[in-house]
Amino acid sequence: MVTLVIGGSGSGKSEYAENLAVSLGQERRIYIATMKPWDEECRQRIERHRQMRAKKQFETVECYRSLKELKLPGDGKAGVILLECMSNLVSNELFGLGEENEAPYLEEGAVSKEILRGIKNLEEKAEHVIIVTNEVFSDGDSYSKETLVYRKVLGEVNQRIGKEAGTVVEVAAGIPIIIKNR
């Protein structure tokens, strides 16, 4: 079953998602990290978060793009997969990673299809899939063309996942608000 956890920056959505994953039992927990370490500060932050997750028995797997091709280490199965976070994945698919010999990044219309195929891949590997995403539509009204495209695609991805998900939770000020629960 898929659970979508959405919230603004600093809302507590990540902590909620991690605690939910832990509450689902002692089976194997995989944390899929989608944030590419762009600089030393970012690398230090990622390492700190990795150590915190290890205390909760998460195995971290980095996947910046091409979620549909992801293979899990070992037997390829998990009790829970937590994907953190969809907004990074959408950005990476739209704009690339800035690496030499990188596969071409996706056109706007292909991103949501690619990501939804990736979610299906995760569902085949785990009983529970928890997806963390950002709510980026409550602030500002003047953005660059690229940012407008990003917001449009992230909104489409969030809506499509939300429709298919068994549970959708919005976290505001650390308070989970159940939007949908099948």
Rank of each mutant, 00 (worst) to 15 (best):
S144H: 04
R48W: 14
D141G: 12
R50S: 11
T133W: 02
S87K: 01
Q159V: 06
G162S: 01
N158E: 07
E124P: 01
L20R: 13
N101D: 00
K120C: 09
I175M: 12
E107H: 10
S138Q: 11
E164R: 15
L116T: 09
I32F: 06
H49M: 04
L4C: 10
I119P: 08
K56V: 14
R28W: 14
S14A: 08
V149K: 00
F58Q: 03
E124T: 09
I46F: 08
R48V: 15
K125A: 11
E114I: 12
K120D: 15
Q44T: 13
G12N: 06
V22L: 10
K36G: 01
F137A: 15
G10D: 06
K55W: 03
L83C: 04
K180A: 00
G162I: 00
A54R: 14
R65P: 10
G79Y: 12
Y31D: 08
A17Y: 07
V61N: 08
R160E: 14
C63Y: 06
G166D: 10
E99S: 15
E69A: 15
I175N: 03
G109H: 05
E127S: 13
K36I: 08
I81M: 00
M52H: 07
E40Q: 11
A165I: 13
Y150E: 01
W38L: 15
